[in-house]
């Protein structure tokens, strides 16, 4: 039995679930937080979504069938929770998608937990200018260190498309960052 499978078994066992879940938090809390934070922009939003994500993981662990790795499955839940949060928020605030995109940067730069210099602001601006999917692909690969295969499972996009999108993004950043 693989390490992953043994861990999942403990998570599914009612008597061991709580202890195993504590360990799961130790390993994945920080990674999932950053994954979420880049999607929902502010720390406050990320905190809420992170809680919801782990509650969903706890409630649904019995349904985990092992078709993907536990790691990918949790990222997928975090991704879906973030998307749900954004949809709910966007409905509340705006009807125009372009407006949301613009205000995302404003919200980020005004966040109490953003402390970026000019280069960091510029990188954020370049990434924010990407198309939605291209942005997700770049952030997942470069910042979350997910493999193309894992990203492919989360976003349901072919690996070749992912690679092409990612390397295009890298090129664009490298060209624009010091201009």
């Amino acid at each position: 039995m693989s390490k992953d499978a043994a861990f999942v078994k403990r998570l599914k066992d009612v008597s061991l679930k709580d202890a195993a879940f504590g360990e799961l938090l130790d390993v994945y809390q920080e990674r999932l937080y950053w994954h979420i934070r880049k999607m929902v922009t502010t720390h406050e939003n990320a905190d809420d979504v992170l809680q919801e994500t782990f509650i969903r993981i706890y409630k649904n662990i019995q349904k985990f069938e092992g078709k993907s790795s536990l790691h990918t499955w949790m990222y997928r839940i975090a991704y879906n929770e973030s998307m749900r949060f954004l949809e709910k928020n966007n409905k509340k605030r705006h009807n125009n998608i372009d407006e949301v995109s613009e205000s995302n940067l404003e919200v980020l730069f005004e966040d109490a937990y953003f402390n970026g210099d000019e280069i960091q602001k510029k990188l954020n601006t370049i990434i924010d200018g990407f198309k939605e999917k291209q942005k997700r692909i770049f952030l997942m690969k470069y910042f979350d260190n997910l493999s193309f295969r894992q990203i492919s499972e989360i976003l349901e996009v072919s690996e070749s498309t992912l690679k092409s999108s990612y390397y295009t993004s890298v090129k664009i950043i490298e060209e624009k960052i010091f201009l």
Partner: peptide, 20 residues
């Protein structure tokens, strides 16, 4: 380093307790 985003001090320890 790259995006200039950070968390409050000791956030992950507090967050773990809050989630549990």
């Amino acid at each position: 380093k790259y995006l200039g985003i950070e968390t409050p001090e000791g956030y992950f320890a507090k967050s773990k307790i809050a989630i549990l």
